[in-house]
Write a protein that binds this DNA or RNA. Structure first.
Lengths: 346, 346
DNA sequence: AGTGTTTATCAAACCGTTTTACCCAAGGTA
DNA sequence: TACCTTGGGTAAAACGGTTTGATAAACACT
C-alpha cells in the first residue's frame, strides 16, 4: 500500500547510503564511486522517486518559477500571436526545470493596484514580458532587480528578443522589386511603435539598394490609428485616390494588408494584377483571404524559446549572472518570406 | 540596505513575540490577544513581510499550484474561448492563493510521452481540464487520484462546469418564435459532441413547448464535419435548396451561423428579412458580421471562476474533501441571449 | 484556599531537500 | 616513518515556514 510518495530518505535506506549521497548522485555533484552511483539510481528508479519541488526550491533558495506577463487585450485578441510565444517559452522551460506563471495586466496599468501577484509575493526567479506594456509597469519591474527579458518589445536597460522587422521588410520589398514593380507603396499605422518604424526603414533600405527613390506620396501612414483591418481599409481608399497609382504595396502587417485588399477588390481592382500586396506576420487569416496573402512569417514559438533560454542563463545556475554585456542584449529572431498569390509574378 | 527579504523571524523580533505567534496571527488561527495581534501586524507591515511560498508550501504539505490543461489546437485557435476561461481561473485562483500552471497537450495524446510535466513531478494539488481531450489522458488523470474539474466537457466520474447548452438554445429559439417565426431550421455539425446535441435538444423543446412540430427536413446537420464557417456555408446551400424555405435558422454555433449568413447574402437574400439567424457562443466576430449576429452569450470567465472555486473546495483546506455527492457534480453556467440585427422583428 | 478551566504564549519538532564541514582510509611524497 | 593529498562518504546545519504540546497566568467556582 506504500501510498504516499517516497522521499529521499527512502531511497537512501534502500540503497544503503546516506541521504547526502543520494542528493549528490541525483545532482551529479561531488565524488561518488561508480558502484554507489548505480545502486542509488537503481533504488530511486524502483521507488519511483521524484524530488519534491517545494523542498528542493526552499533549499536552493529559488522559486523554480518564471513569470510571463502580457497585456490582457493582447492575449485575448483573435490572432494568437502571443499565445504561440507563450507556448514556446513553456516548451523551453521544461529544459530548465522551470514553471511558467502566465498572467495578464490591463492596458492602463496602475502601480500597486495591478501588480501581478507573483511579483508581490516574489515567487518568481525571473520575468518575461511580451508585447508593449505600460511604462509604469516597466519601471516597477526595473526597481525589483529581477532578471527580465522582453519579447517583441524594447526598452532601455532590458534585454529583448525581437522580430527582425527591418530585415523581413527588406526581403519583402526586394521580392516585389524582383517581380518587376517600381512604384511600391508603404502602408502603415502608428509609427511610434518600434516594429512599424523598423518595417518602414526596411522598406526604405530595399528601395535605395535597388537604386529606386522613396516617393513620400507613396508612404501612406495613419499616425493616430492602430494597425488594424479597419485602418487598412481607409488607407486602401487613400491609395485608390492617388493620382499615379502604385503597382504594389508593402503593408506593415497582415491586418492592414487584408483591409487594403478588401477595399481594392470592392473597387473592382484585381490583386495582384492591378496591385500586388505583401503583408507581415503571416497570420492565420493570410491563407484564407480572397486572394491568399504573401507575407513575412515570424517564428513565434522560436521567439519564446530564445527568450526563455536567455532568461534561464541570466537566472542561474550559481550566480552565473554575468555583468550586462551591452550589444549582446538584443536577440533578433529571423523571419521568412512566404510567397502566395497576392504577389504573383506580373 | 536591508537588502534581502525579511523572514518571519525578523517580524517576531520586531514585535517582541515568538515565531509561532506571528504565524498564528498571519493565519488567523489560535487565540491571540488583540494587543499582540496588532503589534505583529504592524511589525509585518513595516518590514514589508511576505511569507515565502516555497517554505509555506513545504510546511503545509501542498504545492500551491493547480494545473490547467487544454488541447493545443484549442488554445491557438483564433476565437479565444479557452483563453477567457483561463483568465477566469487565474482570477479566482488569487482568492485561494493558488498559482495556475497552464500547459497544452496534443490532440492525439499518447500516454507517457505527452504527460504534462507537473503531473509527472506531482507538483499540483489539483487539475482543471478545459475542452474535449483524449480519453487516454483522462484515464491517466483518473489513476492519479488528483482532484480534478472539467470545463466545457463531461466525462464519467469527473465533476464539470458546462455551458447551459440546452437552456441557451431554448431561449434562442423561443426568441425566434416570439418574433413570429414558425418555420425555423436547425443548423448543426457533428452531433457526437455533447454541446451540439444539447443545443439540438433545446431547439426541440422550444418548438414543442410552443406547440410547433419538429420538421426533420429543417434539421440540417453534417455529422461528419466540424462546426466551422466552411461547414456553415455548405449547410447554407442546403437550406437554400429547400423546397419550402424556412424564415429563420438557429445555428449550433456562431461559426456555422456566419457561414450560413455568407451563403445567404451571396445568394442575394436578406438577413433578417428573408431569413433570420441566431448563433451560439457570441464570438468576437458576431458583432462585426455584415449583419450583426444575434447570439447566445457564454460567460467564459465566469465558467473558469466556477471551476476554480469548485476545485479549491475539493483541494482543501484540511481534508474537507467530502465524499462525492452525485448530482452536485455538474455545475451549469448560465447563458444570455444577445439580440442584434440578424433577428430583428419581422 | 484549592481546584479546574480557559486564554495567551512559546519552544521545539517537522516538512524534504541541498550544502557544508568534517572524517577516514588509501596513496603519494619527503 | 611522518606528513600531506585525495577520493568517497556522512552527520548535521541550513532553508523559512506551520503545527503540536507544554506551560504559565488569569479566571471561575466550590
Amino acid at each position: 500500500m506504500g501510498s504516499s510518495r517516497s522521499t529521499i530518505r527512502d531511497v537512501a535506506r534502500a540503497a544503503g547510503v546516506s541521504v547526502s549521497t543520494v542528493s549528490l548522485v541525483l545532482n551529479n555533484k561531488g565524488n561518488v564511486s561508480e558502484a554507489t552511483r548505480r545502486r542509488v539510481l537503481k533504488a530511486a528508479r524502483e521507488l519511483g522517486y521524484v524530488p519534491l519541488r517545494t523542498a528542493r526550491d526552499l533549499s536552493k533558495q529559488r522559486t523554480g518559477n518564471v513569470g510571463f506577463v502580457l497585456r490582457e487585450d493582447h492575449f485575448t485578441r483573435s490572432e494568437p500571436f502571443y499565445t504561440y510565444i507563450f507556448l514556446g517559452t513553456e516548451f523551453e522551460a521544461r529544459l530548465h526545470s522551470l514553471y511558467v506563471l502566465l498572467t495578464t495586466i490591463p492596458r492602463d496599468y496602475r502601480k500597486g493596484e495591478h501588480t501581478p501577484r507573483f511579483l508581490r509575493e516574489r515567487s518568481v526567479d525571473g520575468l518575461l514580458i511580451a508585447g508593449k506594456v505600460s511604462a509604469v509597469f516597466l519601471e516597477e519591474v526595473r526597481a525589483m532587480k529581477l532578471p527580465t527579458v522582453l519579447i517583441d518589445y524594447e526598452a532601455e536597460g532590458f534585454p529583448a528578443v525581437v522580430i527582425d522587422n527591418q530585415g523581413g521588410a527588406r526581403v519583402a520589398v526586394e521580392h516585389l522589386i524582383q517581380q518587376g514593380h517600381r512604384r511600391i507603396a508603404f502602408i502603415g499605422a502608428d509609427l511610434r511603435h518600434p516594429s512599424i518604424a523598423d518595417r518602414l526603414e526596411g522598406y526604405r533600405i530595399a528601395l535605395e539598394r535597388a537604386g529606386l527613390s522613396v516617393d513620400p506620396a507613396l508612404v501612406l501612414v495613419d499616425d493616430e490609428a492602430e494597425p488594424t483591418r479597419a485602418t487598412g481599409q481607409q488607407l486602401g481608399a487613400r491609395l485608390l485616390a492617388l493620382a499615379e497609382r502604385p503597382t504594389a504595396a508593402f503593408c506593415a502587417n497582415d491586418a492592414l494588408a487584408l483591409g487594403v485588399m478588401e477595399t481594392l477588390l470592392q473597387a473592382g481592382l484585381r490583386v495582384p494584377d492591378d496591385v500586388a500586396l505583401v503583408g507581415f506576420d503571416d497570420v492565420q487569416g493570410a491563407t484564407q483571404a480572397p486572394v491568399p496573402l504573401t507575407s513575412v512569417r515570424v517564428f513565434k514559438e522560436q521567439m519564446g524559446e530564445l527568450a526563455m533560454r536567455h532568461l534561464a542563463e541570466r537566472i542561474g545556475p550559481e550566480q552565473t549572472r554575468r555583468p550586462y554585456a551591452r550589444g549582446q542584449h538584443t536577440i533578433v529572431a529571423p523571419t521568412e518570406l512566404v510567397v502566395r498569390a497576392s504577389s504573383a509574378r506580373v
